[in-house]
Amino acid sequence: MGEQKKEAVGTPGGRRIADIILECRNLWKIYGKIVAVKDVSLEVKEGDIKLIFGPSGSGKSTLARCLAMLTTPTKGDVFLMGECLTKPGVDLNKARAKIGFVFQHIWLFHHLSALGNIELGLRRVLKLPKNEAREQAIQALKEVKMEEWANHFPAQLSGGQQQRVGIARALAMSPEIIILDEPTSALDPELTGEVIDTLRDLAKKGTTMLVISHEMPFAREVADEMIFLDEGMIVERGQPELFFTKPSSERARRFMARLIKLTRRE
């Protein structure tokens, strides 16, 4: 704990610190009696790769959705490029277009081909003309090595291929940041590999990412910071090496030990 920076609140709406892309301050999400996210503050700088992990039910997905404003936080603020998204009257559609989101269960549009899935946002949100949207969609498919599958429908693709299209769909909108909510946990180990490779490529290109994942080798390789979430709270955060060598909290230590044991068994 203790490491959480309590920064002074800057002028609302104005650009505060230029290189902070996405930030939340004292974020809470409460469903009835269940506190899913409890007073979480974090910030993602340009080019950062943050990795959030923790046991199931620890509020990771809820936090990710609050950050993308797909769920309205109960308390606290979310800032995108210094603009507060949690005050009334903000154009959330515009904000969401700048935040890429990749879902655990993928959620491609079933009635559209891989290409169509990517073109939809380009045409209807970014209002690109048809041929330009097509060009950019093909470019995005190339980045995830799926261009040969452009005309296939989601049901004709494997889970790993679908998720790569899901990543391309988010990527094509040229978002400021991509949030990935357990992008591989619905896939078997073989398919996980191809998606992780795609993420590695993105990391190399300097894409700003917030990833929820338990792929520890991947985390160790690319993450700038790992954040351990339990019961909706940030229990511990720091560079990957900290977690792999000597996590200071008991809970993180136990969780890491379990994860590492699981990975070895595979």
């Binding site: 797909l70 277009a97 700048k98 989101f101 946002g121 988010a170």
Partner: peptide
Amino acid sequence: KDQMTAALSLGLSKVQAIMYV
């Protein structure tokens, strides 16, 4: 539900999400 959430995440408005998805 899922399809709506996915559409919103791209920045489509609710009306657009209903129309196109």
